[in-house]
């Protein structure tokens, strides 16, 4: 029963990571850009959700705001800064987006201060429900799993079935060619970047509702999203989904199981400390193993 709960927790964590990683991998696949500021957009989404939800009293409006504000911030940043970086090497991209993080974090701290904000869930979403088998599980976490699944399905439909999706795939393959065929590349890139930002913002709004909303919340998640797309293969949405679920499960189950396993061979106190230290390294070990076997990631095409 406990294991089932941990599995659901892992699934929920994985889905949240997928929302982050999808945007990151899309932006890299289409534009060839490493965006360290993706975590800042996650933070922007969380703050937008918290502020709008607090002032209107509606959590739903807050979620819409997290999508809209993050998308707008993404589009703005793309037009002002990011588009000057497409032809630069990765080093310049890392430095410029690192600078953007400083600007976003300090800007948010200036507006909202250092204290964390808390979001209140509407009654319809809070509380626990009883699953078949008698397991009590928080309803909102199930909602996050559901949202992740819907987004994954929606992205797949978008990429494989719509005209925009065709353009995105064509842009990945050959940007000069689709430009020559009359597609407005600048606009396409802005749309893709805003889409990725909106997904990050949505993840921020959702996670902000179960944790707290504060400056710097985006960076740990950003690093995990990097691990996810390295495991899944950079540029692949399918890889992002598989990688996110793997990382979510490994991390959650590792933290739940490993200290117990260590306790069988050593005393409880040192098993707890050693176990949790090892558990916190587990996903990076997973990444190292994947890289040893497949340097291009599970679903990556190129190195």
């Amino acid at each position: 029963m406990l294991l089932a709960e941990q599995l659901l927790n892992g699934l929920q964590y994985g889905m949240m990571l997928f929302l982050m990683a999808a945007g990151l991998t899309l932006v890299f696949g289409v534009m060839g850009l490493i965006n360290l500021a993706h975590g800042a957009l996650y933070m922007v989404g969380a703050f937008a959700c918290a502020v709008v939800a607090a002032s209107t009293g509606s959590f739903w409006l807050g979620l819409v705001a997290s999508l809209a504000v993050a998308a707008a911030a993404g589009a703005l940043v793309e037009m002002l800064v990011i588009r000057r970086l497409y032809n630069r090497d990765h080093l310049d991209q890392v430095l410029a987006t690192f600078a953007l993080i400083l600007v976003f974090s300090e800007g948010t701290r200036w507006l909202f201060g250092d204290f964390p904000l808390y979001l209140k869930l509407p009654p319809a979403l809070s509380g626990a429900i009883t699953l078949p088998g008698g397991l009590q599980y928080p309803f909102f976490r199930l909602v996050i799993i559901l949202v992740g699944a819907v987004v994954a399905l929606g992205l797949w439909l978008l990429i494989s079935r719509t005209r925009l999706g065709i353009r995105i795939r064509a842009g990945e393959a050959d940007r000069e060619m689709i430009g020559a065929l009359g597609v407005d590349i600048a606009k396409l890139y802005t749309i893709v970047f805003a889409l990725g930002a909106a997904l990050a913002g949505l993840a921020g709004g959702l996670v902000g509702s179960i944790q707290s909303v504060q400056v710097g919340m985006g960076e740990p998640v950003l690093i995990l999203a990097f691990v996810v797309i390295v495991i899944g293969g950079i540029g692949s949405i399918k890889g992002a989904l598989v990688g996110a679920l793997l990382v979510g499960m490994t991390d959650t189950l590792g933290k739940a199981v490993i200290p117990g396993l260590f306790a069988r061979v050593m005393d409880t106190a040192s098993a707890n400390t050693t176990g949790s230290a090892v558990a916190s390294m587990l996903i990076y070990i997973l990444m190292a193993v994947v890289l040893l076997v497949r340097p291009q990631g599970l679903f990556g095409a190129r190195v």
């Binding site: 990765h90 890392v94 990097f226 390295v230 990076y284 890289l291 340097p295």
Partner: peptide, 13 residues
């Protein structure tokens, strides 16, 4: 074993 953007992210991780 990796290069380019993978190398950046792997060293970071």
């Amino acid at each position: 074993r990796t290069s380019g953007v993978y190398f950046i992210m792997v060293t970071l991780a």
